[in-house]
Design a protein around this nucleic acid. Sequence first.
DNA 1: CCCCATTAGTTTCATATGTAACTAATTTCC
DNA 2: GGAAATTAGTTACATATGAAACTAATGGGG
Lengths: 170, 170
Amino acid sequence: MNHLPRMSRPASEARLCLAEFLPYRMNVATQAISQGLAQYYADAYGISIPEWRIVATLGEFTEMTARDIAAHSRMSKVMTSRAAASLLKRKLIARRTNREDRRESFLRLTAQGGSVYAEMVPKALVYQARLKEGLSKSDLAALERILAHFMQVSQKDAVENGRFDSLLTL
Amino acid sequence: MNHLPRMSRPASEARLCLAEFLPYRMNVATQAISQGLAQYYADAYGISIPEWRIVATLGEFTEMTARDIAAHSRMSKVMTSRAAASLLKRKLIARRTNREDRRESFLRLTAQGGSVYAEMVPKALVYQARLKEGLSKSDLAALERILAHFMQVSQKDAVENGRFDSLLTL
DNA sequence: CCCCATTAGTTTCATATGTAACTAATTTCC
DNA sequence: GGAAATTAGTTACATATGAAACTAATGGGG
């Protein structure tokens, strides 16, 4: 007589180990990375991550509309609007309505916003360096490919499932 | 006469390019990955990510306390409590108070919860396979090292800054 | 034994975020 | 030239999340 399993199970019972599941692991790692940085931004400058994205974008490009900031920093227009409002209130950025198209306005860092930016950049770079420190050149190169690949796959997936908006939503 | 810059700037003006900033890129990539999966969970089973983490943990370990599920799936006890309450209400999990220590209870999947799990696992594995598809063996190996490294660095950072709780907070 | 500290888990409150509706300006197209 | 569609940006409402307060049960000296 041959041995049959006593308890019937689906033919292909694939096991899932949460701790090894890639989306989970990416989430946990990213959460851990963001946590420290966000805490630092908040403690030192009272700036949230969406606000930081605006400051960083304006620090890089000088003057931009909210729409373009949103696209560049991959935030929704709502998120961008709210973060910009908060920065405006604290006079870290200033707005200038576009006379050619009065729906939009150009945003730029104020002097004060500029010095916050100037202070934050080196800290951010140190943080990034700490993250990379200890990884080999080839692992860092792999990371570039991997992140690009993930973006591409997810993007394709979003398009296939009609979530076009998620291409711009935080 | 020698040329001096007309506008004085900090001696070491390190530039920051948001699009290349690692924490930002990890965030964007992870967000994109999670989005698709979360949407799928929600559409097909009305299950959120925290709920899925509980289901996945119980599918793997059969019976566990909320505390241990939280630790294993890296969620705060609040998040775990809320997600568990929702799953209990929908009878996807069941609870059994521990008689030795009546503060805690053991949670397990119900038959219904078990079949949801059984249906979701293959889908999750396909999603993961899609993500990995197209990456070389060596890039995937690098990814393992990278994620482990990020966890280690962030963990050390959290401890140094007294954020012990963030070791367990989602 | 009993008071105090600790632990599991829940609830409350404040804040953050997403979706959808909205306003105002502009463009399209007849 | 003007009604209809589009676009930039804001607001309103519902939901999600985090922090802290809270409840109930246990453990640990004295």
